[in-house]
Design a binder for these strands. Sequence first.
DNA 1: CGACACATGTAACACGTTACATGATTTG
DNA 2: CAAATCATGTAACGTGTTACATGTGTCG
Lengths: 191, 191
Amino acid sequence: MSIRHGLLALLERGPRYGYQLRSEFESATGTTWPLNVGQVYTTLARLERDGLVRPVGEADADGRVTYLITDTGRAEVASWFATPVQRADRPRDELAIKLALALTTPGVDIRAVVQTQRTATLRSLQDLTRLKVRAGEDDHAWLLVLEAMIFQAEAEVRWLDHCESRLARLGRLEPITEQAPVPTRAREDAR
Amino acid sequence: MSIRHGLLALLERGPRYGYQLRSEFESATGTTWPLNVGQVYTTLARLERDGLVRPVGEADADGRVTYLITDTGRAEVASWFATPVQRADRPRDELAIKLALALTTPGVDIRAVVQTQRTATLRSLQDLTRLKVRAGEDDHAWLLVLEAMIFQAEAEVRWLDHCESRLARLGRLEPITEQAPVPTRAREDAR
DNA sequence: CGACACATGTAACACGTTACATGATTTG
DNA sequence: CAAATCATGTAACGTGTTACATGTGTCG
Protein backbone atom coordinates (compact mmCIF):
# COMPACT_ATOMS: atom_id res chain seq x y z
CA MET A 1 0.00 0.00 0.00
CA SER A 2 3.04 2.28 -0.25
CA ILE A 3 2.23 3.70 -3.65
CA ARG A 4 -1.44 4.14 -2.89
CA HIS A 5 -0.74 6.14 0.23
CA GLY A 6 2.21 7.90 -1.32
CA LEU A 7 0.18 9.26 -4.21
CA LEU A 8 -2.60 10.19 -1.86
CA ALA A 9 -0.17 12.17 0.30
CA LEU A 10 1.09 13.98 -2.78
CA LEU A 11 -2.48 14.84 -3.72
CA GLU A 12 -2.98 16.40 -0.34
CA ARG A 13 -0.52 19.09 -1.33
CA GLY A 14 -2.88 20.13 -4.07
CA PRO A 15 -4.42 19.02 -7.36
CA ARG A 16 -2.09 16.92 -9.47
CA TYR A 17 -2.22 14.95 -12.70
CA GLY A 18 -0.82 11.49 -13.25
CA TYR A 19 2.44 12.17 -14.97
CA GLN A 20 3.24 14.83 -12.42
CA LEU A 21 2.56 12.44 -9.57
CA ARG A 22 5.10 10.00 -10.88
CA SER A 23 7.92 12.53 -11.04
CA GLU A 24 7.03 13.95 -7.65
CA PHE A 25 6.89 10.53 -6.08
CA GLU A 26 10.26 9.65 -7.50
CA SER A 27 11.91 12.90 -6.55
CA ALA A 28 10.37 12.75 -3.07
CA THR A 29 12.01 9.38 -2.50
CA GLY A 30 15.27 10.22 -4.23
CA THR A 31 14.51 8.06 -7.28
CA THR A 32 15.27 5.11 -5.05
CA TRP A 33 12.20 3.25 -6.18
CA PRO A 34 11.42 4.01 -9.81
CA LEU A 35 7.74 4.08 -10.51
CA ASN A 36 6.25 2.94 -13.79
CA VAL A 37 3.89 5.62 -15.10
CA GLY A 38 1.26 3.07 -15.94
CA GLN A 39 1.02 2.19 -12.30
CA VAL A 40 0.13 5.74 -11.40
CA TYR A 41 -2.93 5.51 -13.60
CA THR A 42 -4.03 2.13 -12.32
CA THR A 43 -3.55 3.33 -8.76
CA LEU A 44 -5.44 6.55 -9.45
CA ALA A 45 -8.31 4.51 -10.86
CA ARG A 46 -8.39 2.41 -7.69
CA LEU A 47 -8.23 5.48 -5.49
CA GLU A 48 -11.14 6.94 -7.42
CA ARG A 49 -13.05 3.68 -7.14
CA ASP A 50 -12.64 3.88 -3.37
CA GLY A 51 -13.73 7.51 -3.24
CA LEU A 52 -10.38 8.86 -2.03
CA VAL A 53 -9.75 11.04 -5.06
CA ARG A 54 -11.86 12.64 -7.75
CA PRO A 55 -10.94 13.77 -11.26
CA VAL A 56 -11.60 17.43 -11.89
CA GLY A 57 -13.58 17.48 -15.14
CA GLU A 58 -12.08 16.10 -18.35
CA ALA A 59 -8.61 16.44 -19.78
CA ASP A 60 -7.46 20.03 -20.26
CA ALA A 61 -5.94 21.55 -23.41
CA ASP A 62 -2.64 19.75 -22.80
CA GLY A 63 -4.43 16.44 -22.28
CA ARG A 64 -3.87 16.52 -18.54
CA VAL A 65 -6.41 15.02 -16.18
CA THR A 66 -6.22 16.66 -12.80
CA TYR A 67 -7.23 14.85 -9.62
CA LEU A 68 -8.35 16.21 -6.29
CA ILE A 69 -8.23 14.48 -2.93
CA THR A 70 -11.61 14.04 -1.23
CA ASP A 71 -12.40 14.45 2.44
CA THR A 72 -12.34 10.70 2.81
CA GLY A 73 -8.93 10.69 1.17
CA ARG A 74 -7.70 13.41 3.49
CA ALA A 75 -8.82 11.38 6.48
CA GLU A 76 -7.04 8.35 5.06
CA VAL A 77 -3.78 10.27 4.73
CA ALA A 78 -4.08 11.64 8.24
CA SER A 79 -4.66 8.16 9.60
CA TRP A 80 -1.73 6.86 7.58
CA PHE A 81 0.63 9.41 9.10
CA ALA A 82 -0.78 8.93 12.57
CA THR A 83 -0.52 5.14 12.58
CA PRO A 84 2.93 3.61 13.04
CA VAL A 85 4.10 0.85 10.73
CA GLN A 86 3.81 -2.34 12.74
CA ARG A 87 6.06 -5.31 12.42
CA ALA A 88 3.20 -7.45 11.19
CA ASP A 89 2.37 -4.97 8.44
CA ARG A 90 5.65 -5.58 6.74
CA PRO A 91 6.14 -8.12 4.04
CA ARG A 92 7.91 -11.34 4.93
CA ASP A 93 11.65 -10.91 5.09
CA GLU A 94 12.90 -13.00 2.21
CA LEU A 95 16.49 -13.07 3.44
CA ALA A 96 15.51 -14.30 6.90
CA ILE A 97 13.33 -17.00 5.37
CA LYS A 98 16.13 -18.01 3.06
CA LEU A 99 18.67 -18.41 5.84
CA ALA A 100 16.24 -20.14 8.16
CA LEU A 101 15.51 -22.69 5.47
CA ALA A 102 19.11 -22.98 4.37
CA LEU A 103 19.91 -23.98 7.93
CA THR A 104 17.94 -27.20 7.67
CA THR A 105 17.96 -27.99 3.98
CA PRO A 106 20.39 -30.83 3.31
CA GLY A 107 22.97 -30.18 0.64
CA VAL A 108 22.93 -26.43 1.15
CA ASP A 109 26.10 -24.80 2.43
CA ILE A 110 24.65 -22.14 4.66
CA ARG A 111 28.04 -20.58 5.40
CA ALA A 112 28.42 -19.95 1.68
CA VAL A 113 24.96 -18.42 1.50
CA VAL A 114 25.80 -16.10 4.38
CA GLN A 115 29.11 -15.13 2.80
CA THR A 116 27.61 -14.42 -0.61
CA GLN A 117 24.94 -12.27 0.94
CA ARG A 118 27.43 -10.45 3.10
CA THR A 119 29.52 -9.53 0.09
CA ALA A 120 26.49 -8.28 -1.81
CA THR A 121 25.17 -6.28 1.14
CA LEU A 122 28.58 -4.76 1.74
CA ARG A 123 28.84 -3.73 -1.87
CA SER A 124 25.45 -2.04 -1.84
CA LEU A 125 26.42 -0.37 1.41
CA GLN A 126 29.41 1.12 -0.37
CA ASP A 127 27.20 2.27 -3.23
CA LEU A 128 24.82 3.91 -0.80
CA THR A 129 27.63 5.64 1.05
CA ARG A 130 29.03 6.93 -2.22
CA LEU A 131 25.61 8.27 -3.13
CA LYS A 132 25.34 9.99 0.21
CA VAL A 133 28.68 11.71 -0.21
CA ARG A 134 27.64 12.95 -3.63
CA ALA A 135 24.21 14.00 -2.39
CA GLY A 136 23.74 17.62 -1.51
CA GLU A 137 22.76 18.75 1.95
CA ASP A 138 19.63 20.32 0.53
CA ASP A 139 17.58 17.30 -0.48
CA HIS A 140 16.36 16.22 2.94
CA ALA A 141 13.89 13.66 1.65
CA TRP A 142 16.50 11.82 -0.32
CA LEU A 143 18.93 11.88 2.60
CA LEU A 144 16.23 10.42 4.80
CA VAL A 145 15.61 7.52 2.44
CA LEU A 146 19.29 7.01 1.73
CA GLU A 147 20.09 6.82 5.40
CA ALA A 148 17.22 4.45 6.04
CA MET A 149 18.77 2.08 3.56
CA ILE A 150 22.23 2.59 4.96
CA PHE A 151 21.08 1.81 8.48
CA GLN A 152 19.27 -1.27 7.21
CA ALA A 153 22.26 -2.50 5.26
CA GLU A 154 24.52 -2.01 8.26
CA ALA A 155 22.12 -3.95 10.44
CA GLU A 156 22.05 -6.69 7.84
CA VAL A 157 25.82 -7.00 7.85
CA ARG A 158 25.87 -7.13 11.62
CA TRP A 159 23.18 -9.79 11.59
CA LEU A 160 25.04 -11.85 9.01
CA ASP A 161 28.20 -11.66 11.10
CA HIS A 162 26.19 -12.71 14.10
CA CYS A 163 24.84 -15.67 12.13
CA GLU A 164 28.27 -16.63 11.03
CA SER A 165 29.72 -16.69 14.51
CA ARG A 166 26.77 -18.70 15.71
CA LEU A 167 27.30 -21.13 12.88
CA ALA A 168 30.97 -21.37 13.73
CA ARG A 169 30.05 -22.25 17.30
CA LEU A 170 27.61 -24.88 16.10
CA GLY A 171 30.15 -26.20 13.62
CA ARG A 172 32.67 -26.80 16.38
CA LEU A 173 30.16 -28.78 18.40
CA GLU A 174 28.69 -30.65 15.48
CA PRO A 175 30.98 -30.94 12.44
CA ILE A 176 29.65 -29.82 9.07
CA THR A 177 27.85 -32.43 7.04
CA GLU A 178 27.46 -30.49 3.77
CA GLN A 179 29.46 -32.26 1.10
CA ALA A 180 30.91 -35.19 2.98
CA PRO A 181 28.04 -37.55 3.79
CA VAL A 182 27.56 -38.54 7.39
CA PRO A 183 28.07 -42.31 7.60
CA THR A 184 24.75 -43.06 9.26
CA ARG A 185 22.71 -41.10 6.72
CA ALA A 186 24.76 -41.59 3.58
CA ARG A 187 21.93 -43.19 1.60
CA GLU A 188 19.49 -40.39 2.33
CA ASP A 189 21.93 -37.65 1.40
CA ALA A 190 22.84 -39.18 -1.93
CA ARG A 191 21.07 -37.92 -5.00
CA MET B 1 8.38 -14.82 -3.99
CA SER B 2 9.18 -15.82 -0.41
CA ILE B 3 6.45 -18.39 -0.03
CA ARG B 4 7.01 -19.87 -3.44
CA HIS B 5 10.69 -20.42 -2.79
CA GLY B 6 10.14 -21.38 0.79
CA LEU B 7 7.76 -24.19 -0.07
CA LEU B 8 10.07 -25.31 -2.84
CA ALA B 9 12.98 -25.50 -0.42
CA LEU B 10 10.87 -27.59 1.96
CA LEU B 11 10.01 -29.92 -0.88
CA GLU B 12 13.67 -30.43 -1.58
CA ARG B 13 13.93 -32.22 1.75
CA GLY B 14 11.56 -34.85 0.46
CA PRO B 15 7.98 -35.45 -0.65
CA ARG B 16 5.45 -33.40 1.28
CA TYR B 17 1.73 -32.71 1.22
CA GLY B 18 0.07 -29.32 1.53
CA TYR B 19 -1.01 -29.26 5.13
CA GLN B 20 2.38 -30.53 6.18
CA LEU B 21 4.11 -27.79 4.22
CA ARG B 22 2.23 -25.13 6.07
CA SER B 23 3.23 -26.35 9.51
CA GLU B 24 6.82 -26.91 8.45
CA PHE B 25 7.03 -23.45 6.93
CA GLU B 26 5.66 -21.89 10.06
CA SER B 27 7.87 -23.84 12.41
CA ALA B 28 10.91 -23.20 10.23
CA THR B 29 10.36 -19.46 10.58
CA GLY B 30 9.33 -19.55 14.21
CA THR B 31 5.65 -18.89 13.47
CA THR B 32 6.74 -15.33 12.80
CA TRP B 33 4.76 -15.16 9.62
CA PRO B 34 1.59 -17.23 9.85
CA LEU B 35 0.64 -18.84 6.58
CA ASN B 36 -2.94 -19.38 5.50
CA VAL B 37 -3.36 -23.01 4.41
CA GLY B 38 -5.27 -21.98 1.35
CA GLN B 39 -2.22 -20.19 0.11
CA VAL B 40 -0.19 -23.35 0.23
CA TYR B 41 -2.56 -24.94 -2.23
CA THR B 42 -2.67 -21.98 -4.58
CA THR B 43 1.11 -21.76 -4.47
CA LEU B 44 1.47 -25.49 -5.08
CA ALA B 45 -0.81 -25.17 -8.09
CA ARG B 46 1.38 -22.39 -9.46
CA LEU B 47 4.55 -24.35 -8.81
CA GLU B 48 3.04 -27.29 -10.65
CA ARG B 49 1.95 -25.04 -13.50
CA ASP B 50 5.59 -23.89 -13.82
CA GLY B 51 6.93 -27.44 -13.74
CA LEU B 52 8.80 -27.03 -10.45
CA VAL B 53 6.83 -29.67 -8.56
CA ARG B 54 4.74 -32.66 -9.47
CA PRO B 55 1.94 -34.40 -7.55
CA VAL B 56 2.63 -38.06 -6.89
CA GLY B 57 -0.54 -39.83 -8.00
CA GLU B 58 -3.91 -39.05 -6.43
CA ALA B 59 -4.85 -38.49 -2.80
CA ASP B 60 -3.93 -41.37 -0.49
CA ALA B 61 -6.22 -43.10 2.02
CA ASP B 62 -6.03 -40.12 4.38
CA GLY B 63 -6.86 -37.71 1.57
CA ARG B 64 -3.30 -36.46 1.35
CA VAL B 65 -1.83 -35.35 -1.96
CA THR B 66 1.93 -35.68 -1.94
CA TYR B 67 4.15 -33.49 -4.08
CA LEU B 68 7.66 -34.06 -5.39
CA ILE B 69 10.17 -31.46 -6.50
CA THR B 70 11.31 -31.78 -10.11
CA ASP B 71 14.82 -31.30 -11.47
CA THR B 72 13.81 -27.86 -12.67
CA GLY B 73 12.55 -27.13 -9.18
CA ARG B 74 15.79 -28.33 -7.66
CA ALA B 75 17.73 -26.03 -9.95
CA GLU B 76 15.47 -23.17 -8.95
CA VAL B 77 16.12 -23.76 -5.26
CA ALA B 78 19.85 -23.98 -5.83
CA SER B 79 19.81 -20.73 -7.73
CA TRP B 80 17.70 -19.13 -4.99
CA PHE B 81 20.22 -20.03 -2.32
CA ALA B 82 23.16 -19.05 -4.49
CA THR B 83 21.82 -15.62 -5.43
CA PRO B 84 21.98 -12.89 -2.79
CA VAL B 85 18.94 -10.75 -2.10
CA GLN B 86 19.64 -7.43 -3.75
CA ARG B 87 18.46 -4.09 -2.52
CA ALA B 88 16.33 -3.61 -5.61
CA ASP B 89 14.58 -6.96 -5.05
CA ARG B 90 13.05 -5.75 -1.84
CA PRO B 91 9.66 -4.16 -1.62
CA ARG B 92 9.48 -0.44 -1.15
CA ASP B 93 10.10 0.60 2.43
CA GLU B 94 6.77 1.99 3.55
CA LEU B 95 8.19 3.72 6.60
CA ALA B 96 10.88 5.51 4.61
CA ILE B 97 8.31 6.64 2.07
CA LYS B 98 6.03 7.83 4.81
CA LEU B 99 8.67 9.94 6.50
CA ALA B 100 10.00 11.30 3.22
CA LEU B 101 6.53 12.44 2.31
CA ALA B 102 5.70 13.67 5.80
CA LEU B 103 8.72 15.95 5.50
CA THR B 104 7.15 17.98 2.72
CA THR B 105 3.43 17.54 3.25
CA PRO B 106 1.97 20.71 4.76
CA GLY B 107 -0.06 20.23 7.89
CA VAL B 108 1.79 17.08 8.92
CA ASP B 109 3.84 17.22 12.08
CA ILE B 110 6.74 15.03 11.11
CA ARG B 111 8.27 15.11 14.59
CA ALA B 112 5.06 13.54 15.91
CA VAL B 113 5.17 10.89 13.21
CA VAL B 114 8.74 10.03 14.13
CA GLN B 115 7.90 9.90 17.82
CA THR B 116 4.87 7.67 17.35
CA GLN B 117 6.84 5.30 15.21
CA ARG B 118 9.72 5.27 17.65
CA THR B 119 7.44 4.28 20.49
CA ALA B 120 5.87 1.50 18.45
CA THR B 121 9.21 0.18 17.24
CA LEU B 122 10.61 0.26 20.75
CA ARG B 123 7.65 -1.68 22.04
CA SER B 124 7.99 -4.38 19.42
CA LEU B 125 11.70 -4.49 20.17
CA GLN B 126 10.84 -5.29 23.76
CA ASP B 127 8.41 -7.97 22.67
CA LEU B 128 11.05 -9.53 20.46
CA THR B 129 13.63 -9.47 23.22
CA ARG B 130 11.19 -11.12 25.59
CA LEU B 131 10.52 -13.81 23.01
CA LYS B 132 14.22 -14.39 22.59
CA VAL B 133 14.74 -14.84 26.31
CA ARG B 134 11.93 -17.38 26.42
CA ALA B 135 13.19 -19.14 23.30
CA GLY B 136 15.26 -22.24 23.78
CA GLU B 137 18.81 -22.48 22.56
CA ASP B 138 17.84 -25.44 20.39
CA ASP B 139 15.63 -23.83 17.79
CA HIS B 140 18.28 -22.26 15.62
CA ALA B 141 15.94 -21.31 12.80
CA TRP B 142 13.68 -19.36 15.07
CA LEU B 143 16.61 -17.63 16.75
CA LEU B 144 17.90 -16.63 13.33
CA VAL B 145 14.60 -15.03 12.35
CA LEU B 146 14.07 -13.46 15.75
CA GLU B 147 17.49 -11.89 15.70
CA ALA B 148 16.98 -10.64 12.16
CA MET B 149 13.94 -8.77 13.38
CA ILE B 150 15.73 -7.51 16.47
CA PHE B 151 18.62 -6.16 14.44
CA GLN B 152 16.18 -4.50 12.08
CA ALA B 153 14.17 -2.93 14.86
CA GLU B 154 17.32 -1.63 16.50
CA ALA B 155 18.44 -0.11 13.24
CA GLU B 156 15.04 1.47 12.84
CA VAL B 157 15.25 3.11 16.25
CA ARG B 158 18.72 4.41 15.49
CA TRP B 159 17.50 5.76 12.17
CA LEU B 160 14.51 7.46 13.79
CA ASP B 161 16.78 9.09 16.36
CA HIS B 162 19.03 10.21 13.56
CA CYS B 163 16.02 11.71 11.78
CA GLU B 164 14.93 13.48 14.90
CA SER B 165 18.27 15.12 15.51
CA ARG B 166 18.42 16.19 11.89
CA LEU B 167 14.94 17.65 12.20
CA ALA B 168 15.96 19.47 15.35
CA ARG B 169 18.89 21.00 13.50
CA LEU B 170 16.63 22.05 10.64
CA GLY B 171 14.05 23.41 13.02
CA ARG B 172 16.61 25.69 14.61
CA LEU B 173 17.70 27.09 11.24
CA GLU B 174 14.27 27.36 9.68
CA PRO B 175 11.34 27.60 12.08
CA ILE B 176 8.42 25.28 11.50
CA THR B 177 5.82 26.52 9.05
CA GLU B 178 3.19 23.81 9.59
CA GLN B 179 -0.02 25.65 10.43
CA ALA B 180 0.90 29.25 9.58
CA PRO B 181 0.74 29.76 5.81
CA VAL B 182 3.72 31.23 4.04
CA PRO B 183 2.71 34.76 2.92
CA THR B 184 3.75 34.46 -0.73
CA ARG B 185 1.79 31.27 -1.30
CA ALA B 186 -1.18 31.74 0.98
CA ARG B 187 -3.77 31.45 -1.81
CA GLU B 188 -2.42 28.14 -3.03
CA ASP B 189 -2.35 26.61 0.42
CA ALA B 190 -5.93 27.47 1.15
CA ARG B 191 -8.56 24.86 0.64
C1' DC C 1 -22.85 -35.18 20.25
C1' DG C 2 -20.19 -31.19 19.51
C1' DA C 3 -15.89 -29.10 19.00
C1' DC C 4 -11.62 -29.29 17.13
C1' DA C 5 -7.73 -30.62 14.30
C1' DC C 6 -6.61 -32.56 9.91
C1' DA C 7 -6.86 -32.15 4.97
C1' DT C 8 -7.96 -30.30 0.32
C1' DG C 9 -9.44 -27.10 -2.63
C1' DT C 10 -11.84 -22.84 -5.13
C1' DA C 11 -13.42 -18.14 -5.96
C1' DA C 12 -12.59 -13.61 -5.61
C1' DC C 13 -9.97 -9.82 -4.88
C1' DA C 14 -5.92 -6.72 -3.55
C1' DC C 15 -1.85 -4.57 -5.06
C1' DG C 16 2.17 -4.29 -7.93
C1' DT C 17 4.21 -4.67 -12.47
C1' DT C 18 5.10 -4.63 -17.24
C1' DA C 19 4.18 -4.19 -22.07
C1' DC C 20 1.78 -2.06 -25.27
C1' DA C 21 -1.03 1.56 -27.91
C1' DT C 22 -1.84 6.28 -28.79
C1' DG C 23 -1.07 10.93 -29.53
C1' DA C 24 0.85 15.91 -28.76
C1' DT C 25 4.77 18.66 -28.22
C1' DT C 26 9.46 19.87 -28.00
C1' DT C 27 14.16 19.94 -29.59
C1' DG C 28 18.55 18.80 -31.94
C1' DC D 1 12.56 15.29 -39.92
C1' DA D 2 13.60 12.14 -36.20
C1' DA D 3 14.06 11.33 -31.56
C1' DA D 4 12.91 12.32 -27.03
C1' DT D 5 9.76 13.86 -23.62
C1' DC D 6 5.20 14.61 -22.08
C1' DA D 7 0.79 12.55 -21.23
C1' DT D 8 -2.95 9.10 -20.80
C1' DG D 9 -4.61 4.84 -20.63
C1' DT D 10 -5.55 -0.54 -21.04
C1' DA D 11 -4.72 -5.50 -20.97
C1' DA D 12 -2.69 -9.06 -18.89
C1' DC D 13 -0.38 -11.32 -15.48
C1' DG D 14 2.15 -12.23 -10.95
C1' DT D 15 2.02 -13.05 -6.05
C1' DG D 16 -0.29 -12.71 -1.73
C1' DT D 17 -4.50 -13.02 0.94
C1' DT D 18 -8.88 -14.13 2.67
C1' DA D 19 -13.31 -16.38 2.93
C1' DC D 20 -15.72 -20.10 1.99
C1' DA D 21 -17.10 -25.06 1.00
C1' DT D 22 -16.28 -29.77 1.98
C1' DG D 23 -15.16 -33.85 4.24
C1' DT D 24 -12.72 -37.17 7.76
C1' DG D 25 -11.24 -38.42 12.08
C1' DT D 26 -10.65 -37.85 17.08
C1' DC D 27 -11.56 -36.81 21.77
C1' DG D 28 -13.90 -35.11 25.86
